[in-house]
Design a protein around this nucleic acid. Sequence first.
DNA 1: TCACGGACGAGAGCGGCGCTCTTGCGCGGA
DNA 2: TCCGCGCAAGAGCGCCGCTCTCGTCCGTGA
Lengths: 227, 227
Amino acid sequence: MPAVPTARERARRELTADILEAARRQLAASGAAALSVRAVARELGLASSALYRYFATRDELLTALIVEAYGDAADAVEAAAAPAPGRSRRERFTGGCRALRAWAVAHPHEYALVHGSPVPGYRGDDRTTAAGARTPMALLAVLQGLPAPATPLDPRLAEGADRVASAGAATGADAVPPALVVVAAQCWTALLGLISSELFGQLAHTFDPADAFADATIEALADRLGL
Amino acid sequence: MPAVPTARERARRELTADILEAARRQLAASGAAALSVRAVARELGLASSALYRYFATRDELLTALIVEAYGDAADAVEAAAAPAPGRSRRERFTGGCRALRAWAVAHPHEYALVHGSPVPGYRGDDRTTAAGARTPMALLAVLQGLPAPATPLDPRLAEGADRVASAGAATGADAVPPALVVVAAQCWTALLGLISSELFGQLAHTFDPADAFADATIEALADRLGL
DNA sequence: TCACGGACGAGAGCGGCGCTCTTGCGCGGA
DNA sequence: TCCGCGCAAGAGCGCCGCTCTCGTCCGTGA
């Protein structure tokens, strides 16, 4: 590994980035199922077989996009949920939630890719699960130092709550009581349900457009967390 | 339309049913994206072109399966949420929610078909939205006669709540105060989020297996509705 | 400096897909 | 009885993911 990369290495890196960019564009335009290796190659003026030197499989290309999407969403949420002067804990939480919804509305295909039905046959690997943990952990970090809810912890949930807490400890999101971790997880699934329902048309002809409904729901989640 | 169907008509009906059955089997085995007209035809010993006399398009076949899936889920939920001697309102609600989750766990591909990311390019039509309304309406009907929650109705949500209420009036699910309709809709999206998170692997390495987590979440929803 | 190995892109090709069109056949209403 | 329509089959089009082979050219070690 030389300090100065060879022309080959530079070219490889650049072409890899170009492929990802074209794939990203196709994903945003038409969704994951419509993303085809051949179309990406066409857009780049390459033979489709050439792409397989960079991504062994369509699934690998998709995995790269999934990791990217998780990262984009997490960036937005972390920025909105970060501590800031004059920003209350409740505002950090609701801001983070709203940021995730806004990102999802702006990037529906990317959201569907990571939080919709898994692409058939696709096995999430460590890269994707790690990338996917960032956003919920950012929201969990907001709850640090909050008192446990009045309702005691269901013993059947203790193991899961500990797993979450220990995962959060690595990212500084420890010191959240297990019973609160459970409530937080419930709020997390509720938030995903809210966004998915809106994007996937479950709210058709009811609360549509859904801005007010989303805001009200997020406030209700904050209430439930005691924020 | 004769009282006695001709042999042609009988044959057409039977073959249509056979096609749906084979498609159902493929869906359950491999998911919606893997369902192919050609494979269904192969299973039935037909030329693939013959199937297009019965379903003009792969999407139409998928639509029929979607309507079926909605119906199956609604049957299960309605049975569990129906009034019964010695069954409290809370039990009807939580039973209905648990029934939906149980159906989803038993039929993950069907659940993904109706509540996952929409099949790209697929436009839900009136048939699917009508079929999809049955389950939430069954749960809403449980709330008939319940008092409105303490928090007043957000005026921005009044229109949507009215739409839901008027849709529910046709199915006997009227007499639910608008503010409660909003909370019910929030619980509905939360329930979908709970089930989707479990099925689509968002809970991986945390609350997995998710039975206890699901039960606790459903009880929390009942609490929130004042049941 | 040169020769060789390996990375590279192009092209042909395989099997599968959704979907269309044509062809020939047999049922059923006039 | 005879004609028309519904029907299944087959060929075919353009797409897909993926593989293999082949000629080329870069980069490195001798």
